Computed example of a mutant assay.
Amino acid sequence: MPERLVLRMRRSLADAIPEPLWPAGIRLVPFEPDRHAQKVHALLVKAYAQGGGYVEPFAIWWPSLRDDSEYDPTLCFLAANEQDELVGVAQCWTSAFVKDLAVDPAMRRQGLGAALLSHVFRAFAERGVPSVDLKVDADNPSGALRLYRSLGFETVETYRLG
């Protein structure tokens, strides 16, 4: 595995939090594990197919997520289209960490990632958390770094993996 440069980024929740602006026809749906876990996994696989992330096979991914001490199903935010297909997900840990943010490649650059993150910011601000963190590969090909910086994330740590 080649060495990767990873950035840990943080967004203060003391700053103004924008209202989520959902693309036309997109709405939030509550995460129901029995109904959505496999669909979330499929979306992660699809979104990460061109790089920018990795997801274990479902039989490994789901138990490790579900059984993690930081897992809370209310912190899995799903965006669906008018056909009820999942097109975006923000899976967060209770420590105010965005574990996964994935947008269907066909929906990228339409504001869905920004809307999901704005919703995440509001959810954690309601919990009284001072900031939200995430990690991203410095060479992420999906435009994620540009999105994160545009929403006020700043790099707080850089390290190499691999």
Score class of each variant (00 low, 15 high):
Ala49Asn: 00
Ala90His: 11
Gln50Met: 11
Val40Ala: 12
Ile17Tyr: 00
Pro141Ala: 09
Val29Leu: 10
Trp62Gln: 03
Leu65Gly: 02
Ala80Asn: 04
Pro2Asn: 10
Ala123Asp: 02
Glu82Lys: 10
Asp67Met: 07
Glu19Gly: 06
Asn81Leu: 14
Gly152Leu: 02
Arg4Thr: 09
Ala96Cys: 13
Met9Val: 13
Ala102His: 07
Ala90Glu: 02
Ala16Gln: 13
Leu134Ser: 08
Phe31Trp: 02
Pro105Leu: 04
Glu70Arg: 15
Val129Glu: 05
Trp93His: 15
Val87Tyr: 07
Arg8Pro: 07
Ile60His: 10
Pro141Tyr: 03
Ser95Gly: 06
Arg160Phe: 06
Gly128Ile: 04
Pro130Cys: 05
Ala47Thr: 12
Ser69Asp: 15
Gly88Thr: 11
Leu21Arg: 11
Gln83Asn: 13
Trp22Glu: 09
Pro30Ala: 13
Leu112Tyr: 08
Lys46Trp: 00
Ser118Val: 06
Gln38Trp: 14
Gly25Cys: 12
Ala96Arg: 13
Arg4Gly: 02
Leu28Trp: 13
Pro18Phe: 05
Ala14Met: 05
Arg109Tyr: 04
Ala37Phe: 09
Asp139Tyr: 01
Leu147Cys: 04
Ile17Ser: 06
Ile26Gln: 10
Ser131Met: 00
Pro23Ala: 08
Asp137Met: 05
Ala37Thr: 01
Glu126Tyr: 01
Arg108Tyr: 08
Trp61Tyr: 15
Val29Thr: 15
Ser64Met: 11
Leu101Trp: 02
Leu44Glu: 15
Asn140Gln: 03
Ser12Phe: 02
Arg10Cys: 07
Ala47Gly: 14
Leu116Arg: 05
Val136Asp: 00
Ala80Glu: 10
Gln110Met: 15
Val103Asp: 01
Pro73Gly: 03
Ala14Pro: 08
Arg8Gly: 01
Asp84Glu: 15
Asp84Ala: 14
Met9Gln: 13
Val87Lys: 12
Ser12Thr: 13
Pro33Ile: 05
Leu13Pro: 01
Gly51Val: 08
Ser95Met: 04
Leu21Gln: 10
Asp68Gln: 01
Lys135Tyr: 04
Arg146Asn: 07
Cys76Leu: 02
Pro105Phe: 03
Ala144Phe: 03
Trp61Ala: 10
Pro23Met: 04
Leu151Asp: 00
Lys46Val: 00
Leu78Cys: 14
Ala96Gln: 05
Ser69Trp: 11
Phe124Asp: 07
Tyr71Met: 09
Glu82Arg: 14
Arg127Met: 12
Asp100Pro: 01
Leu117Met: 12
Leu13Cys: 11
Arg11Cys: 06
Asp84Pro: 10
Leu13Ile: 10
Leu147Ser: 04
Leu5Glu: 12
Leu44Val: 05
Ala49Trp: 00
Asp133Lys: 10
Leu151Arg: 07
Gln83His: 11
Leu151Tyr: 01
Ala14Cys: 07
Asp72Pro: 12
Ala24Thr: 05
Ala114Gly: 14
Ala144Asn: 04
Ala106Asn: 11
Pro141Gln: 11
Leu28Asp: 07
Ala125Glu: 13
Arg149Val: 09
Val103Asn: 14
Ala115Trp: 08
Tyr48Leu: 06
Thr155Trp: 03
Arg109Phe: 03
Trp22Ile: 07
Tyr159Leu: 06
Ser69Leu: 11
Val129Phe: 06
Leu44Cys: 15
Ala96Gly: 14
Asp15Ile: 01
Gly143Phe: 10
Asp137Cys: 03
Gln50Asp: 05
Ala80Val: 11
Arg35His: 09
Ser12Lys: 02
Ala90Asn: 13
Ala59Gly: 12
